[in-house]
């Protein structure tokens, strides 16, 4: 994203601006995109650490895992999945319109994405709240009497760590997308040659979606 920000630095310059050290615009876009993919790779490996904890402990405590996952609210989880997938669609459409230079549509699509992101977080809040009520909390805070199997508190440790990290990424993604939206509204200069900013923001958003696509069956459908 930073790469697009220096592409987007100048105010009155013709769109898009080529940073001084790049040989050509092609190179600049290529660099931005490759940089973003590398960054996404680091994100994947970041979540991978939690996936491994998940895998290992599920291997050790299969019954506890199944029992604990049944205590989650599948309906809310499913709704959240649908919300996030749809927000991914609107993010993809935002890129589509950015390429066509329809800046209004870009802003609308990103706004829709943001609304759904907020929706996702609100639903997540209710899920968390319920857990705090009944005491299905990580590690030593676990106090739910409904399920008493070895390994259950560990399930909630993994649950809270991974959903909290994912939630943090949702918030970061929202900030990134909000910047593109403001730009689409204020400068309205996205077009066939200048859409990298929206593209990268949307790629990040898709990654957030991608992580959730895996978290959902792992946590809710064991």
């Amino acid at each position: 994203m930073q790469s697009s920000s220096h592409a987007a630095g100048g105010a009155a310059l013709p769109v898009p601006r080529l940073a001084g050290h790049f040989a050509s615009l092609e190179v600049q876009n290529h660099a931005a995109r490759l940089g973003m993919w590398l960054f996404l790779a680091t994100e994947i490996l970041l979540f991978a650490g939690l996936f491994i904890c998940y895998g290992v402990y599920r291997f050790l405590f299969p019954e506890a895992w199944a029992a604990a996952s049944r205590s989650l609210d599948l309906t809310l989880g499913t709704i959240n999945t649908v919300v996030l997938i749809t927000s991914s669609l609107t993010a993809a459409l935002a890129v589509h319109y950015a390429k066509e230079g329809k800046n209004k549509m870009v802003a609308v699509q990103i706004a829709l994405t943001l609304v759904m992101a907020v929706g996702f977080l609100v639903i997540k809040y209710f899920e968390y709240h319920h857990k705090f009520e009944i005491g299905t909390l990580p590690g030593r805070f676990y106090s739910y009497e409904g399920i008493q199997l070895p390994g259950v508190p560990l399930y909630f440790t993994v649950y809270f760590c991974s959903t909290a990290l994912h939630g943090l990424h949702v918030v970061i993604g929202m900030v990134v997308l909000a910047f593109s939206m403001v730009r689409a509204l204020k400068k309205a200069d996205f077009g066939p040659n200048n859409y990298t900013m929206v593209e990268l923001g949307s790629m990040y958003w898709h990654l957030v979606d991608l992580v959730w696509i895996f978290l959902f069956p792992m946590l809710y459908l064991v």
């Binding site: 993919w37 790779a41 991978a48 996936f51 895998g55």
Partner: peptide, 30 residues
């Protein structure tokens, strides 16, 4: 999501490699 929303189907070369390697590492690490 990867191929169409993130356009990996259009991105070739290093982009694909980066992604493939990261997935490979996750699998081995697991």
């Amino acid at each position: 999501v990867l191929l169409y929303f993130m356009h990996l189907i259009d991105h070739r070369g290093a982009n694909r490699l980066v992604f493939a390697v990261s997935i490979l590492f996750v699998l081995l690490m697991l």
